[in-house]
Every structure is written in structure tokens, then in C-alpha cells.
Design a protein around this nucleic acid. Structure first.
Length: 436
RNA sequence: UCCUCAGUAGCUCAAUGGUAGAGCAUUCGGCUGUUAACCGAAGGGUUGUAGGUUCGAGUCCUACCUGAGGAGCCA
């Protein structure tokens, strides 16, 4: 008679049955004649139990001598048990050891606390911990929600290139590499310019992929390689962009609350902080933001950009994301459409997450007028030849259009209530850290 | 790139300029309901590197290396 192979996540459906679960030994608690191995299988953690008098001696000895993170396949009967974490427990009947981790070189991440440097050096193993597991499952939920939101709202996924011939935005630094020793190309820092082309072909589009910034930033909000989702819409105004950004965030938060409650609990994240993320989000202008900041004691002057502290000051007092729009054109990218009533302002919007998490979305309406775009390219000293295709978009059926970009890691950091973005991606790439 | 802080056992951290310590991990022993289990014992050190001051440096000084936090910039 063969027993079914199941996952720990499904164990509650097999109470009273004998089943087989492949996994790894998460931890082992011993008490003389009774042992409690904790099995981890990627879907959850289950406590097993073996009493010396109730199992064959060879089996008991094999369990007793297991080491942390050894790969094992357990067989036993699942039973509801109040005392077990998770509410279910397995009475062990058999154990197959695929690889026993030797004592001479034990698993380095013990159940005690560790420093961040050590954990980052062992990131490939750290991913097995409950906390990292919870964070990456929330990340997965966020990504799935993003795709579902756009897919069910008429957007077409169109991926943009990662090798690009020039800067999308002249301001930030790019990673440069040799392209067959024939020319220099750069790793993309945004798919936006290409998406403006695809939006003119498909109406509503989005891209979702890795993005690279060679900024020498060393803060809790920065990675050199991160994932960004960027929708772009033809015939869209700044107001349309703001509405979509708001709807998307509400949708994502709703999905996380619906499907990832246990993960939020593992992370000790108060779900009430997310339950209040409902439309409408507060909206203020750059002008108002500057006045608010000055009243709160910030050094900011009109015309300057917000620092990290300014973003925190602005978003405190709101329990939901704050939308700030109409920034001075001078501090924004060359492609930003000016405000018709006040041409010194750009029709851009930033979305600042609550609780001091800062900017998670940046976007706005793009310039659709050919002459204005040419003028801006010149003013910013950009090489016109490299933008010929982009300029074409204003020559052949140009329309008002806009979109935004959302950094996935910053969003996950906020939703999980984390201190640092580095835990929201499996293998973070940061200034001074490219390994493992 | 700049500013601040840190580097001592495998890990997390102590140690007034005067003998290098603890908890966890590992090994051995004990324990029939543990929840980062607990109790007892043992092994484990070129104090990041190179100089300097001093009778004497983990501790003070200089440079460098590595990491962390922050700034600017950004999602």
C-alpha cells in the first residue's frame, strides 16, 4: 500500500491519514525519549513527533541524530494537535534521509539572531527562513496582483529592451557595457520611452521587468537592480494617470490582505495599516507641499526637490498614500508635459506611501507636441539623433498620453512594514554587494 | 562621492591602557509534550590589515580594507 505524497500546506486535508512529505529539517527539539523534528517543505512548517517506546529503535535513533537542514522524506499519520504550531502534527512512521548535513560543517544560520552582513553573505540559505519566505510570498502576490490588474483592465503586456543605446532620462547614471566591441550600450533604467511607442500601437500597455540604476546610493530605499512595472496610456491626461495609480494600489493591497494574511502575521505587520488603503487618496500640489513642509520646519525652498526627510514629513498625518503633482519643470525629466495654465510646472505626479516609506510611484503626462519636445531635447543637451524614433511619435498621429512607474521592491517594503528594501528581492544587488 | 559608526570564538556580543570572557552553535552526558526547549560538562582566539605611542595596546594615534547607517540622486 502506498501513501500519498502531500505538501504541508495541504496537510489539514489529510487528518487521520498516513502521508509522505518531502522536505528539510527546520529544527529538532529533543527530550530524552521524545523528539520533535520540525519539517519545512517550502509550503510551510510542520511539527513531527516520535516517542521512543512507540517506534522502532533504529528509526528513533535516526531521527534523534538528524542535523539542521538535512534533506529528508517523512512518512506518518497527520493529526490535529493543539500543542503543535500550525495546529497539525505528524506521528512519524518512517524517515528517509537524502543527505545528512555533517556536524563538522553545520548549517550556518542557527535559530538565534544574526547580523545583517552575515545574513546577506548567506542569502542563498537565509531564503529558507520563515521571515524571508513570508516576504517573498508577499512579493509574489504583489506581482500577480499587478499583472491581474492591468490584464483585466485592457492593458497589453509589452516588454521593452534591457540593452538601450542611450539614457532614457539624462539625469541618472547608467551601467555601461561593450556590445561586441562595436558600440557602447547601457542597461535600461526605464522602459517608458519605448512604451510611449507601444502605447501608440496598442492604446494601453505596460512593461514589467528589471531596471538598473548606477547611482552610488547607499540607503534603505535603493537597489542597483530592481523591478519596475510601467503602464503607459494613449489619450491619457495627468488625472487619468493618477486614477489608474490609485486603483492599482488599492487592488494590490486588497489582494495581499485577501491571500497573504498568514505572511503578514509572520512579519508582525498590522493589517489595519493596509485595510485603510482605500480610494480616494489625498492629493496636493507641489506648491501646497512646499508650504506644508516649510510650516513643519523644513529648509526646502520653492523650486527644490524633496529629500527623504521631506517625504516623511509630508506623508505623516495621512493613513493612505499621498499624491503630489505639478512639480517645477526644472527638476523633472525632459519629456514632462507642462501645465497649460502655469507652464513652469510639469504635469508629473509622485505617490508617497504612508508611514514614511516615501516615493513608490513616479509618473505623469508626456509631451505630445513636436516643437516643444525638440526644444526640451535641445535644452537638456540630449543627442537628437538618438531620439529620432521617439520624435517620430510626435510626427505621426501624436496624442496626449501618460503613465507611471512603480518600484516593486519599495511597494513590498511598505506593505510588509520592513526597514530595508534588500529583503524584498531574492538576491539584492546594491552598492558594494553583488554576491551571492 | 561625502559624513557618521562598527570590525574580538562558526554566530550575537562583553572586557577602566595591566591574565581573552559569556550566550548560542558543535561534541559528550541527562530529560516522555517541546515551542529560538531546558540542565551539566568539554573543545574552540594571530582581537580586520599594516605601522606607531607606551614598561605594557582588544582598548590610544595614523593609513588602508570590509561592512552598516545616512546625504545627494532616485522607483
Amino acid at each position: 500500500m502506498s501513501v500519498p505524497t502531500i505538501t504541508i500546506a495541504d496537510a489539514h486535508r489529510h487528518a487521520g491519514e498516513s502521508v509522505r512529505i518531502p522536505g528539510w529539517l527546520y529544527n529538532l527539539r529533543k527530550s530524552g525519549k521524545i523528539v520533535f523534528p520540525l519539517l519545512r517543505d517550502g509550503t510551510g512548517i510542520m511539527q513531527c513527533v516520535a516517542v521512543k517506546s512507540a517506534v522502532p529503535e533504529a528509526l528513533f535513533d535516526k531521527i534523534k541524530d538528524l542535523t539542521q537542514e538535512s534533506s529528508i522524506i517523512v512518512t506518518g499519520k497527520v493529526r490535529a494537535e493543539q500543542r503543535a504550531p500550525g495546529g497539525f502534527e505528524m506521528d512519524l512512521e518512517d524517515l528517509e534521509v537524502l543527505q545528512r548535513v555533517p556536524e563538522s560543517d553545520p548549517y550556518p544560520i542557527t535559530p538565534k539572531e544574526h547580523g545583517i552582513d552575515f545574513l546577506m553573505d548567506h542569502r542563498h540559505l537565509w531564503l529558507r527562513s520563515r521571515r524571508q519566505h513570508a516576504i517573498l510570498r508577499v512579493r509574489h502576490e504583489v506581482i500577480r496582483a499587478v499583472r491581474d490588474y492591468f490584464d483585466s483592465n485592457g492593458f497589453t503586456l509589452i516588454d521593452t529592451p534591457i540593452f538601450t543605446p542611450a539614457a532614457c532620462e539624462g539625469t541618472t547614471s547608467l551601467f555601461e557595457l561593450n556590445y561586441f566591441d562595436e558600440e557602447k550600450v547601457y542597461l535600461t533604467q526605464s522602459g517608458q520611452l519605448y512604451n510611449e511607442a507601444t502605447a501608440m500601437a496598442f492604446g494601453k500597455v505596460y512593461c514589467f521587468g528589471p531596471t538598473f540604476r548606477a547611482e552610488r546610493s547607499k540607503t534603505r530605499r535603493h537597489l542597483t537592480e530592481f523591478w519596475m512595472v510601467e503602464p503607459e496610456m494613449a489619450y491619457a491626461t495627468l488625472e487619468d494617470v493618477k486614477r489608474v495609480a490609485e486603483e492599482m494600489i488599492v487592488f494590490i493591497v486588497g489582494r495581499v490582505l485577501e491571500n497573504r494574511r498568514p505572511e503578514l502575521k509572520e512579519l508582525e505587520r498590522d493589517p489595519a495599516k493596509l485595510e485603510c488603503i482605500q480610494a480616494p487618496f489625498p492629493r496636493i500640489s507641489y506648491d501646497e507641499a512646499v508650504k506644508i513642509l516649510q510650516a513643519k520646519g523644513s529648509e526646502i525652498q520653492w523650486g527644490g526637490d524633496f529629500g527623504g526627510g521631506d517625504e516623511t514629513l509630508l506623508s505623516e498625518g495621512y493613513d493612505r498614500p499621498l499624491m503630489v503633482d505639478r512639480y517645477p519643470s526644472a527638476i523633472k525629466a525632459f519629456y514632462m508635459q507642462p501645465d497649460a495654465e502655469r507652464p513652469e510646472l510639469a504635469l508629473g505626479v509622485d505617490v508617497l506611501a504612508p508611514e514614511g516609506y516615501g516615493e513608490v510611484i513616479g509618473g505623469g503626462q508626456r509631451i505630445h507636441d513636436l516643437d516643444l519636445l525638440l526644444r526640451r531635447i535641445e535644452e537638456h543637451g540630449l543627442p537628437k539623433e538618438a531620439f529620432n524614433w521617439y520624435i517620430d511619435l510626435r510626427k505621426f498621429g501624436t496624442v496626449p498620453h501618460g503613465g507611471f512607474g512603480m518600484g516593486i521592491e519599495r511597494c513590498v517594503t511598505w506593505l510588509c512594514g520592513l526597514e530595508h528594501v534588500r529583503e524584498t528581492i531574492a538576491f539584492p544587488r546594491m552598492l558594494y554587494r553583488t554576491r551571492p
